[in-house]
Design a protein around this nucleic acid. Structure first.
Lengths: 341, 341
DNA sequence: CTGTTAGCGCATTCAG
DNA sequence: CTGAATGCGCTAACAG
C-alpha cells in the first residue's frame, strides 16, 4: 500500500510551505484565512492523518507532563489503577511521557483544589483526577481547563465541571448484576439484606438503587438496607442486629462498606444454611472471604483498565488534540467467583 | 527529569560512532568482539532504552507487514478478535503497521500451510496464526520461524511448534468456573449434563475435564457427556434423548457444540422447573438464549483482548526484538449474565 | 570492520 | 503573514 500522506505533500499541492501547513493543522495563528481554508480543504481531501511517531519524536525534547491526583497510596484499590496507568505509561514511555503522582486525602477539598492549581502553575500538559466531588474542586478544574490544561476524571467523577470526560464504572449496572446473581442463586420467595456505606454518596446509592430496581417484582425482597458509614462498629452492630431479627434472610449484597465487619458478623452467626453473599471489587478482605467460601460472587470494575484508558485518552488529547467522543467511558463490569482467582 | 540516554551518548562514551553502536544494539554483524562488548557494557551501565518513536519513524519508509491467518470472516467469534486487532493497529497505525488478513478454512491444513509459505515469500515481518493444529501446519510454522519470520498463535494453539507464544484462553479454568457456577445455582445432590463438540479436540476436552474435576465430590453428578460434533442433528437427538431419559437433570453445561440445537431441545422439553444452563462465549445464539431467559451464565474469553495482545506482542518483537517472557498468555476469563449485556 | 551521512515526518526557530 | 532551515533518535546505505 501507499505511504500515507505527509505534511509536505499537502504543502506542494497547496502551493505553500510545510511551515504554513503545520500552522494551519495545529490551529496556530499567522495564516491568512483563505490560505488556511485551502490547506484545510486539501488536507481533508487527501485524508491527512498525522504520523504519530514523527509527532512524538519532534515533541520529545519537551516531555509530556501529566499530573495524577488520587487518594493516598495505601488504598489497595487505587494501587490497581496505578498498575493500569503504569502499563499505559510504559507503552508510551518511549514517547517521553512523564507522570507526577499527587496523593490527596479524600476528606479535604482545599488540598485537592490547591494541588490542581499547583500543577497548572508547574505547567503540566494534562491532569487526571480522582478524589472527591466538591464545589471548590469544581472551580479549580474549570480554571485548569479554561487555561488550556485538560482534566480527565477517573473512577469517581466530578459532575457539572468542565472536565473533559469521566472514565469509570457503570454503577447502576453493577447493582443490577448483583440482583441478577442473587435471583439465580436463591429460589423465588426469599429475603435479602443490603449493606452500604453512605447512602448520601452517589456512588453508594447508585448501586443500591440498581439492585433494588432490578429485584422488584422478582419475589426476592430486600428487608433492609444497612448504612455502616464505612466504620467497623456501625456496620457490625447493625448487621448483626438485622440478621438476628430476620432469621429468614438468605442473601446479603454488600454494595459498599466495611467488608471486614460483615465477614465477622457472618462468621459468628453459625447457621445451618450459609448465606449467599455478593460483594464488590477485589479488596484483600473480599478475596479472603471468597477463599474461605463465605463470599459467592464479587463484581469488579476493572480498575487497571480505568487507569490505562484514562492515560491513553489524555495522551491522545494532548498530542493529537483528539477530543474523546463521549463524556462517559464505562469500563467493563465483570463477575468473579473463587474459581476465577 | 533528565532526557533518556541516546545512541549518540553511548557512542561518545565508548569512543565509537553511532553506526557502530547501532550495529551492536541490533545484533548486526561487522563489529569486532571487544568493541561490541564495550558498547554493550556502556549501554547497560547507562541503562539505555531505545526511543520507540524514533525507531518507528526511521522504520516508516518500509512499513511493518504482518499477516494474519484466521478462519473465514463469517464466524462471529473471530470478528471480535478482529476488533481487538484493529484497535491495537489503530494505536500503532501512525507507526506504519500494515495488516494482511488471510482467511483459511479450518478443515484444510494444506491451505493453511500454503498461506504461511506465501506470506513468508512475500516478505512479511511477522505472522499471527489461528487455525487448526496439524503436522503440515507445524512444519510451515517451523520453517517460517527458522527463516526469521516470527509466528504467534492466538485463540487456538499449534502445540509442539516453534511458534513464539500463544495468546488465548485458559481452557481448564473456564471449565472450573462453569463448575463453580453450577455448584452455586444448584442445591447439593443433583444431576447435570454436559454438551461438547468433539472430545477428540483438545480445546473441547479440556473444558469438560476442568468442569468434571472441579465438580467431583461436590454432590453434583454428571450423568452424561454428549458429543454433538458441532452438528445440529447429532446434538439435537442426543440431548433430547438424554433429557428424556433422565428427568432429574437440573443443569446443563454447554462446553462447546451446537448451541442452536441445544436451545431447541430445551424449549421443547416443557418442564415446570427450568434448567440451569451455562454456556461459553457470546455467539448470537447464546446472547439470544440469555435474553430469552434460557441461559443463566456464559463464560467468555475476551476475544478482543486476544487480538489486541497478539498484535502488540508481535509488534514489540519485530520492532524491538523483545521476546515475550512466557510461552502462554492467557486472557482474562469472565462471567456474563443477561444483566451484563 | 568502522565512521559518515542522508533521510523518516513533524515542530520550531529564524529570516524575510 | 510565510518560507526555509534545523533537529528529535534512529536506521541504512555508502565510504573509507
Amino acid at each position: 500500500m501507499r505511504m500515507s500522506v505527509t505534511i509536505r505533500q499537502i504543502a506542494v499541492k497547496a502551493g505553500v510551505s510545510r511551515g504554513t501547513v503545520d500552522r494551519v493543522l495545529n490551529d496556530r495563528p499567522g495564516v491568512k484565512p483563505h490560505v488556511r481554508e485551502k490547506v484545510m480543504a486539501i488536507a481533508e481531501e487527501l485524508n491527512y492523518v498525522p504520523n504519530a511517531a514523527a509527532k512524538a519524536l519532534a515533541f520529545s525534547k519537551k516531555p509530556l507532563h501529566v499530573g495524577i491526583i488520587m487518594p493516598p497510596r495505601e488504598i489497595e484499590f487505587f494501587q490497581e489503577i496505578r498498575d493500569g496507568i503504569e502499563e499505559a505509561a510504559d507503552e508510551l514511555k518511549g514517547f517521553g511521557i512523564q507522570l507526577e503522582y499527587c496523593y490527596v486525602s479524600n476528606q479535604n477539598p482545599e488540598e485537592g483544589a490547591a494541588v490542581i492549581r499547583k500543577l497548572v502553575e508547574d505547567g503540566v500538559n494534562g491532569i487526571m483526577f480522582s478524589v472527591m466531588d466538591d464545589d471548590l474542586i469544581r472551580l479549580s478544574i474549570n480554571q485548569a481547563v479554561d487555561s488550556g490544561v485538560p482534566v480527565i476524571t477517573f473512577n469517581s467523577d466530578v459532575e457539572q465541571s468542565k472536565r473533559i470526560c469521566f472514565v469509570g464504572q457503570n454503577l447502576p449496572q453493577s447493582g443490577r448484576i448483583a440482583a441478577g446473581l442473587m435471583a439465580r442463586v436463591l429460589r423465588s420467595p426469599s429475603k435479602v439484606l443490603v449493606v452500604a456505606g453512605h447512602l448520601s454518596i452517589y456512588a453508594h446509592r447508585a448501586r443500591v438503587k440498581g439492585f433494588g430496581d432490578h429485584l422488584s417484582g422478582s419475589g426476592i425482597d430486600i428487608v433492609q438496607v444497612i448504612e455502616g458509614y464505612d466504620r467497623f462498629e456501625d456496620t457490625y452492630e447493625k448487621l448483626k442486629e438485622a440478621l438476628t431479627r430476620y432469621p429468614e434472610i438468605e442473601g446479603i449484597y454488600m454494595a459498599t462498606g466495611h467488608i471486614g465487619a460483615c465477614m465477622d458478623v457472618v462468621k459468628g452467626m453459625n447457621r445451618p444454611n450459609r448465606y449467599r453473599i455478593i460483594a464488590n471489587d477485589l479488596m484483600p478482605e473480599v478475596e479472603q472471604g471468597m477463599r474461605e467460601g463465605l463470599i459467592d460472587f464479587t463484581i469488579v470494575q476493572n480498575p487497571a483498565q480505568q487507569g490505562y484508558r484514562s492515560i491513553r485518552m489524555l495522551y491522545e488529547l494532548i498530542l493529537n488534540g483528539k477530543m474523546p467522543e463521549q463524556q462517559y467511558y464505562y469500563t467493563e463490569t465483570s463477575i468473579v467467583i473463587p474459581e476465577s482467582l
